[in-house]
Amino acid sequence: MTTAPHKQEQVTLDTFLRGIWEENPVFVMLLGMCPVLAVTNSTLNAIAMGLATLFVLVASGTLVSLLRKMIPREVRIATYIIIIATFVTMVDYAIQAISLDLYNSLGAFIQLIVVNCVILGRAEAYASRQRVGAAVVNALGMGVGFTIALLCLGTVRELLGAGSILGYPVFSPDFQPWVVMILPPGGFFVLGSWLLLFEWLKQRRERRTLQSEGATAHGS
């Protein structure tokens, strides 16, 4: 099977926004759950992980898109993995240079960005089929969407589990931290709650659309 010429997407605002809302990698596609649950025990970790993933997404998307006509199908996955691993290694060194404390608190999860399925998924499903411009914009949207999702989890978990945001205490000293929230189970609780909220919003919107359609039908 040859790669059929794919429809080249025009770069619109939707190319960017899709990754943030409609196809959010965490809340809609439920991809990359390993770092989502593991490193969101504080806001700072969530931001660092989000930005690192954003960089790898954009950089690998750009390179895959640039080289898309030169990569034979048979070796495409191997090629994407080498490209992704290269950028992850660069991020790994960069974070060590920026702050060793941050590097230690993120642990092995920086290296594990290599196997984050959001990135390989974008390379395979989008960047390898689209022009560089569209690939970059789409990767940016996905990266921002991923970062926002990590922030949603990280801030709530740090707030409830440690009573602070970015290390600054928010509540009075009498506040008893809800330690379970910064432990692994807290990740599942908070992720579940966010998914519940988004699903409820989605259903409410659908119901309203149906109602308004019904009203128009009656009215006509």
Binding site: L67, M70, P72, T79, I82, I83, A85, F87, T89, M90
Partner: peptide, 14 residues
């Protein structure tokens, strides 16, 4: 050629 080329770019960047 592809794999070798990519590996070289990768090595250079790292």
């Amino acid at each position: 050629r592809t794999l070798g080329g990519i590996a070289m770019i990768s090595g250079f960047l790292v």
